[in-house]
């Protein structure tokens, strides 16, 4: 297991791509909601723009744009993918 790449989604910068390994949100309802929206293990996310006040951030997932606050993206773990 390549643990060294394990980072959370909130650390990613706009424009970077990310592959999800684990959605570890304690709140069960929200975890389910995120899974339904496409934040699934193995799924790919592209980081979009941050809100003018720094948070939330827009993410492109499954052809749609979903905004998440840091409180949520902090709990989504995975690895950065693609070229730098």
């Amino acid at each position: 297991m390549a643990k060294r790449n394990n980072r959370c989604l909130s650390e990613m910068k706009p424009g970077e791509r990310f592959r999800i390994e684990k959605v570890a949100i304690p709140d069960a309802v929200l975890r389910r909601r995120l899974l339904d929206l496409g934040f699934v293990p193995g799924g790919e996310v592209e980081v979009g723009q941050r809100s003018p006040l720094g948070d939330p951030t827009a993410y492109y997932v499954c052809g749609t744009t979903i905004a998440l606050r840091k409180e949520e993206s902090n709990y989504i773990y995975g690895e950065k993918i693609g070229h730098d």
Partner: peptide, 9 residues
Amino acid sequence: ATALERNLN
């Protein structure tokens, strides 16, 4: 049609 993948779920 523009987000078929998620909609197919």
